[in-house]
Amino acid sequence: MIEEPYRWVEAIATRRDYVETQLSSGSPIIALTFADGILLFTVGQQKLFEIYDRIALGAIGHPGDIERLRMAAIELASTEGFARSAADVSLRRLAYYSLSPVMKNAFEQIYGAPFLARLLFAEIGATPAEDLFLRVEYDGAISQKKSGNKRFAVLAPTKKSAEQMEQFLEREDHGDEDMTAALELAFDAWAAGQKQAEEGAVLPGREEIRACRRERLGDGIMEAVVLERRARSPVQYRTVEQKQLAALSEQV
């Protein structure tokens, strides 16, 4: 098949459709910079992970594939951090040099299985301007939000969902709110990404989104982690306690 370029392109396109379909039922993940650092938020169990002192991961996809990629990222960061220092562990290098080529390769080797996963990495810097969000796709493509004052990134099951969340977060003011406000915003953004709007429909206002977020949450379990900018220990990753999240779901 490799000798016949057209059929190869066709096979890749089919594969892309297949992967997109597999990923389309995932729950969105939101990462945003707030007063104390970076917040990652989602609904669902164990989708947010600690990679290294300053790096967190959120993932959508097949649990087995997520686990393989997560382990690879931790191993790479840990060996680098041990051989040199924690300050030398770089998310950019991890994503571009190590993960992306592997994922691209797996995707294009059409006799093998691709990774059914999309990843969102966040790395906290000394200042908000140094925060880095990288999205790594199943085919190895990496995207990074172009600059702008609002620092956030989303990982969505579908393109439509991503657009809605990005539109929502671009519209809302944020950057220096406290933890509670940041959680509120992330929850609203998640609800905006859940809503499967009709083609061409205008994104509803925040009040309207908030009014229906409880319903969209259903029995889902919220999960949130924080990368603290001024943590007391070198490990800046921290899990947000369930009781803080419970307060969020009780309000309308």
Partner: peptide, 15 residues
């Protein structure tokens, strides 16, 4: 030479 970050072959080593 410290090994550092190297491209993965299989994606995971299973350590």
């Amino acid at each position: 030479e410290p090994a550092g970050v190297q491209p993965l072959e299989s994606g995971v080593s299973g350590a």
